[in-house]
C-alpha cells in the first residue's frame, strides 16, 4: 500500500430530484460504487478507495454538498420550471459552468444570465438532463425553455418522435472499452433528444445568434482551446431522415450527456465509467476549483 491510504476520500454525488427518474440513477450509482470499490481493491496501483455518498438534490443547500451531479431523465420543461421557481437555476449554472446561450429564441436571451462564479464540477445529464446541460435547444415549447448549459451543443428535443417511436438499440461506445465486457450497450431511447449541432465560435448557431455578442464568441473560443466537445457515442439515423449517424453521447471537459437512459438498464458500465471520471477529476484538482469567469 502507498502512503496515500490515510483516509478514504468522501465523495458526495447528487441526483437532481425535481422530477423524473431519480431512484433509478441512485440505485445504479450504488451498484457502480460497489463494483468500483471491488475493482480498485484488486488494483495495486490505486491509491485509496473513495467512499461515495449519494443524495437527492431539491435545494441549494443540498446542491452545495455535492462534488458531482446527475441530472436525470424526466420532462425538461417541468424540471426547468420547478428549478426556476425554487431559485435553483442559477446555483445549477454555477455548479456546472457559466452559460450564455439560453434557448433557441432570441427574445429569451437575456443579460440576467450573465454571472457567475464557476465551480465547474462534474455533471452528467441523461435525456432531459442532456437537454438541460445543452447551451441551446430546438423543438422546445412555445416561447422556448430555460437551460443550465455546460455543453456547447444544440440539442433537438423529441427527435425520434412520440412515444411510439421510442426504442431500445445497441450502441458501440468506445469509451467503455476499458470495462472488461465488450458487449454493446443497450441504449434505451424514450422520446429522446439528440445533439444536432456542436457549437463552435464559427458554427451556424454562434454566427446567427447575433445577440450573443463578442463576449460569448470569445468565451467559446477560449473554452475550445482546452475543452472541445467530444462525441462519445452515435446511433444510425432513423430511415429517411438523412445520412450519417445521430450524436447520442457527448462530453466537454467534465460535463457529460447522453440521449439515452443507462439508468433504465441493469448495465452498470456507464455509471462505473462516470464515477471513475469523477474520482480522477477530483484527484487532479479539476473538480472543486473555484474560479471567476
Amino acid at each position: 500500500m502507498t502512503v496515500d491510504t490515510v483516509t478514504p476520500q468522501q465523495i458526495t454525488v447528487g441526483v437532481l430530484a425535481l422530477q423524473g427518474g431519480v431512484i433509478e440513477h441512485i440505485s445504479l450509482l450504488q451498484k457502480a460504487a460497489v463494483q468500483l470499490s471491488s475493482q480498485q481493491s484488486t488494483d495495486s496501483s490505486s491509491t485509496s478507495t473513495p467512499q461515495f455518498n449519494f443524495i437527492q438534490v431539491r435545494t441549494t443547500a443540498q446542491l452545495s454538498q455535492c462534488d458531482a451531479l446527475v441530472i436525470p431523465g424526466g420532462e425538461s420543461t417541468t424540471m426547468a420550471i420547478v428549478a426556476r421557481r425554487l431559485g435553483l437555476l442559477d446555483p445549477l449554472r454555477e455548479f456546472v459552468k457559466q452559460v450564455l446561450f439560453v434557448a433557441f429564441t432570441r427574445s429569451s436571451l437575456s443579460s440576467t444570465h450573465l454571472p457567475l462564479s464557476v465551480q465547474h464540477k462534474p455533471t452528467w445529464g441523461t435525456c432531459a438532463g442532456l437537454v438541460m446541460l445543452a447551451s441551446a435547444a430546438s423543438a422546445t415549447k412555445q416561447g422556448g425553455q430555460e437551460l443550465i448549459g455546460g455543453l456547447d451543443v444544440k440539442v433537438l428535443r423529441n427527435w425520434y418522435g412520440t412515444q411510439i417511436q421510442s426504442f431500445v438499440g445497441d450502441l458501440r461506445l468506445p469509451f467503455l472499452e476499458e470495462e472488461q465486457d465488450k458487449k454493446p450497450f443497450r441504449g434505451v431511447f424514450i422520446r429522446a433528444p439528440v445533439v444536432e449541432e456542436i457549437i463552435t465560435s464559427g458554427s451556424g448557431t454562434a454566427e446567427n445568434a447575433v445577440e450573443l455578442g463578442n463576449d460569448e464568441i470569445a468565451r467559446l473560443k477560449e473554452r475550445q482551446k482546452t475543452e472541445k466537445v467530444q462525441v462519445l457515442g452515435t446511433y444510425p439515423k432513423p430511415q429517411g431522415t438523412g445520412e450519417g449517424d445521430d450524436i447520442v453521447a457527448v462530453r466537454q471537459g467534465n460535463v457529460f450527456g447522453t440521449s439515452f437512459h443507462p439508468e433504465l438498464t441493469d448495465d452498470v458500465r456507464i455509471h462505473v465509467w462516470w464515477l471513475k471520471q469523477v474520482v480522477e477529476g477530483l484527484r487532479s484538482g479539476g473538480g472543486g476549483v473555484q474560479a471567476q469567469s
Binding site: L18, Q19, G73, T78, S166, I190, H261
Partner: peptide, 9 residues
C-alpha cells in the same frame, strides 16, 4: 420507462 420519467410530476 416513460412512466418512470413522469414520476414526481
Amino acid at each position: 420507462g416513460l412512466a418512470q420519467m413522469l414520476k414526481g410530476g
